[in-house]
């Protein structure tokens, strides 16, 4: 669709109204975060606009506090481990589903999607209950396994979407040229779906980093992650150490955003997809 599509359907006045709505909605989406983040640089403890003196004192407070430092470290460790596990499980599953085209395909998909469908509170207390029974509650392993389960579906979905555009003839070509299935996967499939795999990993990381509810139940004081620490402190909305932590998480979001955009631009499958016929 181009701009002319709209002219055919909408009058000029309607277009102007739609445009104003678009700008307002953009402000709604970005405004709260953009208003919040600068406060962490405010020298004065209380919320105070305009910011008169910039300072990094809340960041130094944050780093100096052993509680916050631990939470930061926990988040990094848990999110990284869960991302690695979820990516391995998810890529294998997506490739298997793509190759096999099983009769029970959609049932398998329903099973894989479970952690995305089941409300996190239910997942959280279920896993807490079961891990507690075998004495694994309040451990890093439990938290990492739980986050892996929550993040694996998004990897399957993301990688499946890339594989849908992957020309199966390339694997036939590799086989005809003498490559066994493993080599063909390593040399042909993996390099081509890599942007999708990494996007999936970024989403998995974001899910783990975003989680409050599961960590709230499964993490003991030693495993407390950054969002849990923020939740614990949320009774005081104007604690600027929390604002500083939020600002750091926002920077991670910006980094993930840029990373995803770079991946999208590098997507090697795009030009091939046009030439490829629908046959696999």
């Amino acid at each position: 669709m181009t701009q002319r599509a709209m002219t055919s359907a909408l009058s000029l006045a309607n277009r102007a109204a739609l445009g104003i709505f678009g700008v307002m909605f953009c402000i709604y989406l970005l405004g709260p975060i953009l208003a919040f983040i600068p406060m962490s640089f405010n020298d004065v403890a209380l919320l105070h606009y305009p910011i008169e003196r910039f300072s990094l004192r809340w960041y130094s407070n944050l780093v100096a506090s052993s509680e916050w430092r631990l939470a930061l470290l926990n988040s990094v460790v848990v999110a990284t481990s869960a991302t690695v596990l979820a990516t391995i499980l998810g890529v294998c599953a997506a490739f298997g589903l793509w190759r096999g085209r099983f009769r029970g395909h959609s049932i398998i998909m329903v099973v894989i999607m479970t952690p995305m469908i089941v409300p996190s509170v239910i997942g959280a207390i279920s896993m807490y209950f079961s891990f507690a029974e075998i004495g694994m509650d309040y451990t890093y392993s439990a938290l990492i396994l739980a986050h892996t389960a929550m993040a694996a579906p998004i990897v399957v979905v993301t990688v499946s979407a890339v594989l849908a555009r992957f020309d199966g003839n390339l694997l036939r070509a590799a086989a005809s040229l003498g490559a066994d299935p493993l080599l063909a996967f390593r040399k042909v499939t993996l390099p081509l779906i890599m942007p999708g795999v990494v996007s999936g990993a970024v989403f998995a990381f974001a899910i783990s980093l975003d989680d409050v509810v599961v960590a709230l139940f499964l993490a003991g004081p030693d495993q407390r992650t950054l969002p849990v620490q923020m939740y614990m402190r949320s009774t005081d909305l104007f604690d600027l150490a929390t604002a500083a932590a939020a600002a750091m998480m926002f920077i991670v979001a910006v980094a993930m955003m840029i990373f995803l955009e770079l991946l999208r631009r590098r997507d090697r499958l795009a030009p091939v997809a046009k030439a490829a016929d629908s046959r696999r």
Binding site: P32, F36, D210, M230, S234, F238, T242, M249, A253, M256
Partner: peptide, 16 residues
Amino acid sequence: LPFLTATMVRILAWGI
């Protein structure tokens, strides 16, 4: 961008 920003951050932003 807000979508990738942790939910906790967004909740606190609305609180503030």
